[in-house]
Simulated scan of single mutants.
Amino acid sequence: MELKLPLAGGLENYTLTGTPVAQGTYSPARSRLAFAAAHVVADPLGDNSPGAPAVIDWEHTLGFRRHLWSLGLSVAEAMDTAQRGMGLDWASTQELIRRSAAEAPDGRIAVGVGTDQLPAGTHDLDAVVAAYEEQLAVAEDVAAQPILMASRALCAAAAGPDDYRKVYDRLLAQSSRPVILHWLGSMFDPALAGYWGSDSVEVATDVVVGLIEDNVQKVDGIKISLLDADKEVALRKRLPEGVRLYTGDDFNYPELIQGDGDRYSDALLGIFAAIAPAAAAALKALDDNDLDTYNKVFAPTVPLARQIFSKPTYYYKTGIAFLAWLNGYQPGFTMVGGLQTGRSLPHLADTFRLADQAGVLTNPELAVDRFRQLLKVGGVDA
């Protein structure tokens, strides 16, 4: 198949060369825990303009999660991939958590617990804790594992590391089950710069390691998204025995998940939603100790991931929804908050090429047809 794609201000003929990764049903991986952070599908008839309350297409949003579960992946629900703080309001978040948790097989779900219901402005630490507690109660109510998300409000309110400890120590004491901590770098959200009370990653690492060591029975693991494999490995080496490192590094995940000797990272990744069949196949190969297949499957997905998560990184959600649309998991390329405009046509054309080469266009004919439609709407006669 061939189509014309934007390139350097013009158009080029592009012939699809990729072989789609085989579809199938998988059991959860034995050797690693693997969460895909899933996006939400906007109702194309809803008023999903910037600043408006989210209107969600529940049929396709939940259908996408069933797709992930069928591949053996667990779902990280209501995370930044679902546009927390970028279009998904707290009312819709609660409904998303409850609907998704009701369908999750064997408890294979963890849910984001944050403070984004707080109005814009400055808040004291007690208000931040109260917001976290409200959201933690929702996670407890649906019996889902909590992910204590990095909080913009806490980052703004905290005077230093001691304030982070005050908030997290209180929350961990209340949780009825071990939580996943969440360290999101400023490339994903500029409002989180200096999280844990320092602009130095090394100092911040000392703070979070101390928090974990003092609350080791209440911490299942920590998800770290700094897009720096060396810093992740350095933290991984310092974690107490039994505490997991969940990689959120969408640039270096194959090597981090494979690990080195007895140390490896589990996965909690937005890119897994985009490359779900490849992720499932690679994890099965890892279970079978077939590293050749593991690397062969994952290697071509890395350029795609680096494209989707390129700067400004926080618009990666647009690429996730774009691929879901190309692959037929949602009827239109629309997003809550109008975020489908977050990437240009040339950027999406490069994403299309790399998705083909990675074998994650599961229905190439449909993908070609839909991308031609997008070009036409964008004013490109291809």
Results as ranks from 00 to 15, higher is better:
residue 150 A to H: 09
residue 11 L to R: 13
residue 256 L to T: 02
residue 371 F to W: 05
residue 254 P to H: 04
residue 364 P to T: 08
residue 144 A to S: 14
residue 79 M to C: 09
residue 288 D to M: 04
residue 57 D to E: 13
residue 33 L to D: 07
residue 238 R to P: 04
residue 98 R to C: 03
residue 160 G to P: 03
residue 291 L to M: 00
residue 152 R to M: 13
residue 57 D to K: 01
residue 71 L to G: 07
residue 348 L to M: 12
residue 115 T to W: 02
residue 277 P to L: 10
residue 329 Y to P: 05
residue 318 T to N: 10
residue 20 P to K: 05
residue 251 F to N: 03
residue 271 I to C: 09
residue 219 V to N: 11
residue 269 L to N: 08
residue 156 A to M: 11
residue 75 V to H: 00
residue 251 F to L: 07
residue 32 R to C: 02
residue 196 W to G: 06
residue 265 S to L: 03
residue 24 G to Y: 04
residue 263 R to A: 07
residue 131 A to E: 08
residue 35 F to S: 08
residue 64 F to P: 06
residue 377 V to E: 12
residue 50 P to G: 07
residue 250 D to C: 06
residue 157 A to S: 12
residue 9 G to A: 06
residue 127 A to Y: 08
residue 267 A to I: 13
residue 313 T to W: 09
residue 32 R to P: 00
residue 68 L to A: 08
residue 25 T to D: 11
residue 67 H to M: 05
residue 1 M to Y: 06
residue 217 Q to F: 01
residue 98 R to P: 00
residue 101 A to W: 07
residue 135 Q to P: 00
residue 246 Y to N: 05
residue 30 R to P: 00
residue 57 D to Q: 01
residue 380 V to C: 14
residue 354 L to C: 13
residue 16 L to E: 01
residue 17 T to E: 15
residue 80 D to V: 12
residue 305 A to Q: 09
residue 357 Q to E: 06
residue 344 S to Q: 08
residue 131 A to Q: 04
residue 90 W to N: 03
residue 49 S to A: 11
residue 180 I to M: 01
residue 240 P to W: 01
residue 186 S to Q: 10
residue 377 V to M: 10
residue 90 W to Y: 14
residue 280 A to F: 08
residue 349 A to W: 04
residue 173 A to F: 02
residue 93 T to V: 06
residue 254 P to G: 08
residue 335 M to Y: 01
residue 209 V to H: 04
residue 3 L to I: 11
residue 235 L to G: 00
residue 337 G to M: 15
residue 144 A to N: 02
residue 246 Y to P: 02
residue 307 Q to R: 15
residue 68 L to M: 13
residue 16 L to D: 07
residue 48 N to H: 13
residue 7 L to Q: 01
residue 259 G to C: 08
residue 365 E to K: 14
residue 5 L to A: 12
residue 230 D to I: 14
residue 351 T to F: 11
residue 329 Y to V: 04
residue 174 Q to K: 13
residue 370 R to A: 12
residue 280 A to M: 12
residue 145 Q to G: 07
residue 104 A to P: 03
